[in-house]
Design a protein around this nucleic acid. Structure first.
Length: 812
DNA sequence: AGCACGCCGACT
DNA sequence: GTCGGCGTGCTC
């Protein structure tokens, strides 16, 4: 029996199946999806069994048997296995990379080596030089650990000993199973035997006697203790228990226990809420699709506050009643306790939550609950799309326009695409929900590829907030040089009086803080990347945003020796200072990367604000979503156009989405909301249409721009990134690739480039790119694969790297 | 990726 | 004369 294995070596040359002989003792257990450890050349690696075959095409004398099974049950289902192939083909990734991203981080293999003194050597024969390395045993269990705090000299000595075969190296593959384990102590003998044991225990072993007496006096109560509990109850030390174990009176075994990240929290069960007519109209076709088991993709466009979540909840409820399962994707940033609570309250312990604030181990446990069928709803960020359910009945993607659904590293998959693929397999509906759908999705809905569902009104007829656009040029002209417009100041003071709350949103992109010489205009740059250094106030340093390089702030300009080198840019700290100047008494809660770095501080700050401990919540992107407090009646956007001028064709779309999202934070309940948007380009449609809450108008205008520029959704894009330490190599390779693509691809396809990337150098690597625009291109995948193959040897031998991004979201 | 095999310069 | 540099090629 032969196992076809994808080995955990993510390079071109090994990105295919390798055949291994299945030893007879594994034949019963082995199935596709199981992980195995296999000999691979001189070392041992982990791999995924993709298929089982009777025999192999490969030279049978060269086929090695696989070493061991890592799993008894496959962590990946047949469906996910098939999906992995589809994802790798559609993202041009290595197969293992995809397989590994389908598993929780805790299940990824770790490689280490064990060192041991060669068995044939007698004690006297061990060279003195290495004796201190092996003080107790003849083994060093982990090379990794040992070499970490060994001196360079020690390492050299060890290497020599390895070479002389005095020390033997055994490669190890560990699945860092971060399963939380509990030591369980079991009594192995009868009461009588315990009494006998006391007699035979030397009287100086007081502790052992004490423990034995404890066991006797509690014999009827329990025969099994967790080690920690036992140590406490019997008041003995770990060693004492070990002594009894050596005498075979007790056994100690490790037992995996599941953590519950929400342990101790109680959730009040919630009942389905009565639906508004619009909600019901949206829900009905979804329910039909669930009952008829016909896969369909719905695009649910519902304005902020229209009650999309309730529609999701009731659709899921129906799915669960049919004995099926549901995946709900939420952007990481809005995976807040508020959101999780709503699902927990409705579905209780049947919900698993996967998000980045959980520890590796906690994520693993949540994942296991899904795999073992203990839950039937998974709520999580992007990677939760790979939740190993086997009876999927629905997939919901909330805020479907969010760019975080596209993974920015290999495999560069988009969760929406994967969702639809899984939906097809399970004949299950997909719901894409958003107040501001991506142009791609809305265009597909208009074409009838997706089914469009619309909710134009807020629940309970709450009015949409009043949005005023403030022209900051006008403010300047009338003599206001501060960063707050007159209306905003008036708005804030008004809220202070009424004891209502304000949210101030500063979009920091394009506004990074930097240092500039006022005399000659010199801006300190990173030595390794072509980018300005960012000013960090906390440790008074200049840091590179891309490579982490850090230097001190110069007191005089290195170019012109002038001393008027100053800090520029607008950060939340600056806004806070300015705001305090206007309102000395105001209580500000600031949320940005600096104040939310510590785990849980994000939630803490939000809770404080919710409890009314602040008048103003000031923050960046992270406050745009999920925030739902009844007392917020004013939202101020300080610089609405800061992202509008980024070199990205989606900048208009992002601006509209973000502004709409932020505006949606105001007046969600009884009190009416007001939004003040400050901008230097008040006439831009991305800003104007926010005022009128008119998605359709924005959509039409933006579509026009896309059509004109030949951008999605009219064309598909591929970006090929080429980087190397040698500039000449990058340029020539990118040029050759561009020409090759121009030659190979059809006439209706456009190939642009080569051009230097927006950041032409990062970490001393030069970066170039070329871009493909196409509508239909059957040869695309093959041609791109050919490019990878052509440069295969060059990428392994030199520093050259080629990355391909299908349907990119980041144009940088 | 690792790791071994294999062919040319500075050292015991 | 050997040790060791890293170029080349393979892993079932």
């Amino acid at each position: 029996m032969i196992a076809k294995v994808i080995v955990d070596v993510a390079v071109n040359q090994t990105d295919r199946m390798f055949d291994y002989l299945v030893p007879p003792e594994f034949e019963q257990t082995i199935v596709p999806g199981i992980r195995v450890n296999v000999p691979f050349g001189p070392r041992k690696v982990q791999g995924f069994v993709i298929a089982i075959a009777e025999d192999s095409e490969y030279d049978s004398s060269k086929i090695k048997p696989l070493a061991e099974l890592v799993d008894l049950k496959p962590p990946l289902t047949e469906e996910l296995l098939a999906l992995s192939t589809w994802v790798k083909d559609n993202t041009l990734s290595f197969h293992v990379t995809v397989l590994k991203t389908m598993l929780p981080a805790a299940m990824r293999a770790k490689y280490d080596k064990r060192l041991s003194i060669h068995e044939s050597l007698d004690e006297g024969e061990v060279p003195e030089s290495i004796q201190p390395f092996f003080p107790e045993t003849n083994e060093i269990e982990s090379w990794e650990k040992w070499s970490k705090d060994a001196s360079e000299l020690d390492k050299k000595v060890m290497m020599t000993a390895i070479k002389e075969e005095v020390v033997l190296v055994t490669p190890l593959v560990k699945t860092s199973d971060s399963v939380k384990k509990q030591q369980i102590v079991n009594l192995m003998v009868s009461k009588k035997d315990l009494e006998k044991a006391i007699e035979s225990t030397p009287s100086r072993a007081i502790k052992q006697v004490k423990l034995l007496e404890f066991f006797i006096s509690h014999f009827e109560d329990e025969s099994e203790y967790t080690l920690t509990a036992l140590l406490e109850k019997a008041d003995v030390s770990r060693d004492t228990v070990q002594s009894l174990r050596k005498k075979n009176l007790v056994s100690i075994e490790e037992k995996a226990i599941a953590r519950d990240p929400y342990e101790g929290r109680t959730f009040v069960k919630s009942e389905p809420l009565p639906l508004m007519e619009e909600q019901q109209t949206a829900l009905d076709p979804i329910l039909d699709s669930i009952h008829q088991e016909n896969h369909q993709t719905f695009l649910l466009r519902g304005v902020t506050g229209s009650g999309k979540t309730e529609v999701y909840l009731q659709a899921i409820d129906q799915v669960l009643k049919k004995g099926k399962e549901a995946i709900v994707l939420v952007p990481e940033i809005s995976l807040t306790p508020q959101m999780v609570t709503r699902f927990k309250e409705r579905f209780g312990s049947r919900v698993a939550v996967l998000h980045s604030a959980l520890s590796k181990g906690e994520k693993y446990d949540e994942w296991q609950k899904i795999r073992e069928g203990k839950v039937d709803v998974a709520v999580g960020a992007r990677s939760a799309i790979f939740a190993p359910f086997e009876k999927l009945g629905i997939i919901i993607i909330d805020e479907e326009h969010e760019t975080s659904y596209k993974q920015e590293e290999s495999p560069r998959y988009h969760a929406r695409q994967v969702a639809i693929k899984r939906g097809e397999y399970y004949k299950a509906p997909i719901i894409l929900g958003s107040a501001t759908p991506s142009l791609e999705s809305y265009a597909r809905a208009k074409k009838g590829v997706y089914t469009l569902l619309t909710m134009e009104n807020r629940v309970n007829h709450v009015k949409m907030p009043e949005v005023s656009i403030i022209d900051m040029r006008e403010e300047l002209r009338s003599g206001n040089r501060s960063m707050f417009s007159e209306s905003l100041v008036k708005g804030i003071s008004d809220r202070l009086e009424k004891r209502e709350q304000t949210v101030l949103f500063l979009n920091r992109r394009g506004y990074s803080s930097f240092i500039m010489c006022r005399d000659c205009g010199y801006v300190p740059q990173c030595d390794h990347c072509d980018i300005s250094l960012t000013y960090h106030r906390t440790n008074q340093s200049l840091q590179c945003h891309y490579c982490g390089h850090s230097e001190t702030i110069p007191s005089i300009c290195p170019e012109c020796q002038s001393d008027s080198i100053r800090f520029f840019g607008t950060g939340t700290q600056k806004v806070e200072e300015e705001l305090l100047k206007v309102f000395p008494e105001i209580r500000i809660i600031r949320m940005d990367v600096d104040t939310t770095r510590r785990k849980g501080s994000h939630e803490k700050l939000l809770r404080q604000f919710g409890e009314g401990k602040g008048d103003v919540l000031l923050g960046t992107q992270m406050i745009a979503k999920g925030l739902d407090f009844p007392n917020i009646t004013l939202v101020g956007v300080l610089a609405a156009d800061s992202m509008l001028h980024l070199p990205d064709f989606r900048s208009g779309e992002r601006t509209f989405q973000l502004l709409t999202q932020v505006s949606g934070r105001a007046g969600r309940h009884l009190k009416p909301g007001e939004v003040v948007v400050q901008t230097y380009t008040p006439d831009h449609y991305s800003i104007e249409d926010v005022k009128s809450h008119n998605y359709l108008s924005f959509f039409e205008k933006e579509m026009g721009i896309r059509k004109q520029g030949g951008y999605p959704p009219y064309y598909f894009l591929v970006i090929i990134h080429v980087s190397s330490e040698q500039l000449d190599q990058v340029v020539s390779v990118t040029e050759k690739i561009t020409h090759f693509l121009q030659r190979e691809l059809s006439d209706q396809t456009f190939v642009y480039g080569p051009v230097a990337s927006t950041i032409p150098r990062i970490k001393d690597r030069y970066r170039y790119q070329c871009m493909i625009k196409y509508k239909v291109e059957p040869k695309l995948t093959n041609t791109l694969q050919e490019v990878i193959k052509t440069y295969q040897s060059e990428t392994t031998r030199s520093s050259l790297a080629i990355h391909m991004d299908m349907n990119p979201y980041m144009m940088l």
